[in-house]
């Protein structure tokens, strides 16, 4: 009798501690990493993103519900380049989840293996909101996205070995899709090689590098500092001199300012976004880059 009871208890205990193969719970700080995680993980993972695609990724509220998400996460994907410095550390402190510590397979720091551009030689806040490690908006280069996808696949495989082959195959599929798309995108952008585009904030250096554009005139006088009339006058001057045709703004920027500059230069305002979901029908990373390329090439024609 006693042994039977013990057996039953043991079985219950075992059932509790060894749950049936569950989906990997993946939390991404930003929606672009979440999109990649969905592409790689497929049905084997459950992905959620913290920042909304339309909000400024530098200043996301550290909502307590994120602590709940992080507490039970198997994988955390973050940029690793201090973009989330203002809100991720207190969340991690509160989440107390050893599975997603730096160095564990459950932590993917996307910037790993990526050479960041514009690393400042001298870090001074007199230059505005500078990132000491370099520009953290690297996901706008599809080649870099492939590397990030690879990291994600490696992490998923390490944590969920039985499905490693699936993750491998999904990564291959993603890589092939990007490689094929790069031909399309490259062809579409080829006529504009060497031309300049104005941006509201300096978050397009990787995109510019990939497609041979110059995006080095900004409506913000310094990163994070709101546009001033004198600076805008300078921008208008430069735009007229260089015959610049497009100003790219993100959902959280003040579009009115861009419109004003556009109306006095004849340029077009192009709605851009770094994150899938911020523009209509861009629910995946590939679709987002598709939209960016078609919007920009249409405006520059």
């Amino acid at each position: 009798m006693k042994t039977k009871l013990l057996l039953v208890l043991g079985a219950i205990f075992a059932a509790l501690i060894l749950p049936a193969h569950a989906k990997l719970k993946v939390v991404a700080t930003l929606p672009d990493f979440a999109s990649l995680a969905r592409d790689i993980g497929g049905d084997n993972v459950e992905v959620s993103a913290m920042a909304k695609p339309t909000e400024d990724p530098h200043f996301v509220d550290a909502r307590p519900s994120f602590v709940v998400q992080l507490r039970s996460a198997d994988v955390l994907i973050d940029g690793g380049a201090e973009l989330e410095l203002g809100w991720l550390p207190p969340l991690l402190q509160n989440a107390r989840n050893p599975k997603i510590e730096v160095g564990k397979p459950g932590r993917v720091q996307a910037s790993q293996g990526v050479r960041l551009m514009n690393v400042p030689a001298n870090v001074t806040r007199a230059a505005g909101d500078v990132h000491a490690l370099g520009n953290p908006h690297f996901m706008t280069d599809p080649i870099i996205a492939k590397t990030v996808a690879l990291h994600i696949a490696q992490s998923f495989s390490a944590l969920d070995a039985p499905n490693a082959a699936t993750y491998d195959a999904n990564y291959k599929k993603f890589e092939a899709a990007i490689n094929a798309k790069l031909q399309e995108w490259g062809t579409a952008m080829l006529p504009f090689k060497g031309q300049s585009v104005v941006a509201y904030h300096d978050s397009w250096v990787y995109f510019a590098h990939r497609f041979g554009l110059n995006i080095d005139i900004f409506l913000e006088p310094k990163p994070g500092i709101p546009p001033s009339p004198s600076h805008l006058a300078e921008v208008i001057e430069k735009m007229k001199a260089q015959k610049i045709k497009a100003i790219i703004v993100e959902p959280f920027h003040d579009r009115k300012i861009a419109e004003k500059v556009a109306s006095s230069t004849g340029a077009k305002v192009v709605d851009f976004a770094q994150y899938p979901g911020a523009l209509p029908s861009t629910d995946s990373y590939v679709k987002l880059i598709d939209a960016l390329v078609s919007r920009l090439s249409a405006a520059m024609k």
Binding site: I143, A158, I178, Q183
Partner: peptide, 30 residues
């Protein structure tokens, strides 16, 4: 390809991501 699909200038050759130290190289990088 006509348009480069890899760029060693932006991504390091063989990043290693997991702490187990065994799985690196399972997926060759670009």
């Amino acid at each position: 390809p006509l348009f480069p699909t890899t760029d060693s200038a932006v991504v390091a050759s063989a990043p290693s991501v997991n702490a187990n130290g065994t799985a690196t190289g399972a997926f060759p990088t670009t």
